[in-house]
Design a protein around this nucleic acid. Sequence first.
DNA 1: AGCTCTTCCTGAAAGC
DNA 2: TGCTTTCAGGAAGAGC
Length: 305
Amino acid sequence: MPELPEVETVVRGLQKSLPGRRITEVRLGKTDFIDDPAALAAALTGARMGGVSRVGKFICCELEANAGDGSQGARQYFLIHLGMTGQLRVHDAAQPAPPHTHCIFVLDDGRELRYADIRRFGRMRIVAESQMKHLRGELGTEPLEIGLEDFRARLGARRAMIKALLLDQHVLRGLGNIYVDESLFRARIHPMRVASKLSREQFAALRRAIRETLAAAIRLRGSSISDYVDSAGNRGEYQSHHRVYQREGKPCTRCRENIRRVIVAGRSSFFCPKCQPAPRRKKARRPARTRKMQEKELSQRAAAD
DNA sequence: AGCTCTTCCTGAAAGC
DNA sequence: TGCTTTCAGGAAGAGC
C-alpha cells in the first residue's frame, strides 16, 4: 500500500526520468479512475514534464505550458494517487505492458510512463495552479515538517481515537495504516487512546516516532506488502522491519508479548498489549435500560402530564 | 463531533 | 479438486 515513504520513493525515481521529457502520445485503457479522461489526454498530449513532487500521498507532475498554439494558460499539474495497488513506472517502450496497465504515456526518449492498478482505487486528474493550492489547503500538514506545538494543537483538542486522526489526511497528510501502527508502537501509545487525553510527553514521543518511522522507511525505499514497486519496478525493504503491522500472534520485539489485532476506524490495527497499554475503560454507566423500562418511563411521564 | 457502514475493485486465501 | 465466500483497504459519503 503506497503511503508517504512509498510515494516519496516513486517521486524520487520519476524526478530522475521525467523532467524535460515530452509526452508524444497518450493511450488509455480503463478510465473509471480518471476524473475527465478526455481532458487528461488533451492536457498531456504534447506536454513537457516539469518537476515532480509529493503532496501527502499525491504525486504531482508539473506540466510546462503546452507549446504550439502559443497559449499562455495557467500552469497545470498532473496529479496521481496510487490508491491501494497503483504502480507508476518508466519502461522501455519495447517491454511488454503487464496486466492491468490502464495508461501509457509515450515519452520522447523511447520510454513510456505506465500506470498499472489492479484494484483501480487510484485516481488521476489534471488540475490548475489554483486547484493545487486548494488541494494543499484541504489536506493537513506534512508529518515530516510539522513542529511539536502545531502537532499538539492539531491533535490535542480532538476527542477521536488517535489512530483515526493519524489516518485522516485532513489532519496530517501521507500516513496510512502501516506507518500509523508502526509509529504508535514506537511511541508506546495504544491506537484506541483518545487524542485529547494524551500527555505532552506522549505527543512529543509520537511526533518523534512518526518522524523516525517515516525516515527509516524512506531510507529502505518503502514497504512492499503486496503490489508496491517504485518507478523502476524495485520492491522496498522496510516490510521486514515492521514490528507490529501484520504480525498478529507473533511475539513483540521488545517484550515478547503476542501482538494483537483490533479494528479501529474500520482498519486492522496491530499493537502490543503490554508496550501499548489500553485506555482506561469508560466509566461504567448505569445499567442499560431495556425497552420495557423505557416504555414504562414514557407512560409514567405521560401520566404525570 | 465522531463513529460505523457502504461503495468502489481484484486476487489471495479460507471454507466447503 | 474445484467452486464459492470472505477479506483487505484509501477515501468519500450517508446515516446516526
